[in-house]
Structures are given as structure tokens and as C-alpha cells.
Amino acid sequence: MEKLIGVWIAAFLTLCIYSFLYRDNPFYRFAEHLFVGISVGYGIVLSIHQGLIPLAWTPFWQAITQWPPGWGLTKLIPIAIGLLFFARLIPNYAWLIRYPIAILMGIGSGLAIPNVMQADIFRQVHGTLVPFSQIHAGTLSGSEIFGAILMLIGVISTLTYFFFSVEHRGVVGGVSKVGIIFLMIGFGSAFGNTVMGRVSLLIQRVEFLLQDWLHLI
């Protein structure tokens, strides 16, 4: 019985969301508000259980109850910095919120930039160069050599497109146009690939409606 009620609710909400394809209407608005509200509530509970209790409350309680006080007290520093977010609720001290924001953005950038350089730049350069060592060793077939040269042209021309302090005229302009062609070919294949994924999601939903709800298939 519970399953049956669940299927009917899910089918009703699915149709409410799909009604958006026609126009904005009370059914869509109901489903939208329900979806947003439930997700916020779920998010709050998740934050309490996965963030607040294990990362703030438990270390705080251990730090203040431990005797003699040791390194555990250092955990009070990030907790205090986090509490500064609430300073915005007191107009006279709202400026204090800039400290946790600055720390978060600094740490975030510091962690992200080396990772981006490593994964998106250096690894790609390495991948571009490796086939040429194999060409020298004579281990690549004709089509693989063609692929390696095509990859080299693609990387260099696309890189040229992303030079911002040089005017894209003459040779630079021509090479960057080749880069745009490579980019668009890449986007085209990504588009096709992703659309196929989305169509499978639609099929899954239609299958739910026709099979689990209406029992037509």
C-alpha cells in the first residue's frame, strides 16, 4: 500500500514538473516549491549531522572538557572563525564577516590553482609530447602519427585563441581561427554525447510512468 501511494505521489509530481513544458501553472509552482522546500530541509539536517556535529560541536566539546588542555584547543580557532559568519546578523559588527570570507577564498584558491595547473595544463602538455617520443622510437602506425600531429595542431591553435593581450590579426588571427574550429568540433561531440545521456534520463522517467504507474508496459 505504501509503495502504491509512493508511486502515485511520484507520478503526480513528475507530471507537475513536466507541465512546465506547456507554461507556468499552479501545478508546476506547487511541485517547484515542494522540491525547493524539501531539499532545503534535507540539506539542513545533512549539514547538522555531517558538518556541525562531527566538525564543530564534537571537537569543541572535547577541547573544553579535556584536561590538561592540549593541541585540541587549536580546534577552537577555526570554530571561532566560522562563528564570525554570524556577525552579519549584528549590523555594527557585520564587517567581521570579511575575515572568514577572505580565509575561505584564500584557502580555496590556494588549493584549486595548483590542482588546475597539474591536471589541466601540465598533464595535457605531457600527453601531447609523449606520442612524439614514440614516433622517434618508431612504434607508432601511420594513423597514430597523424593523430599525434593533429593533436599538436589542436593544442597549439586553441592555446593561441586564449591569448588575450595580443590582437588576433595576421598569423595569430589565422591560428586562433583554427583553434576555434577545433573547439567547436570538440563541443559538437560533447553535445551529442550529453544529449544521449539526457535522452536516457527521459526514457527512464517515461518508463516509470508507463510501467510502475500505469502498468502499460
Binding site: 508546476y28 517547484e32 522540491f35 525547493v36 532545503v40 534535507y42 540539506g43
Partner: peptide, 14 residues
């Protein structure tokens, strides 16, 4: 709005 991906999309669409 919300941290949930598609709930966010639904909310912004609204």
C-alpha cells in the same frame, strides 16, 4: 535558494 542541483534549477526556472 537551495543546495540541491535540480531543485535549484526548478526554483530559478520559476
Amino acid at each position: 535558494l537551495t543546495e540541491s542541483q535540480f531543485a535549484y534549477a526548478a526554483g530559478v526556472d520559476g
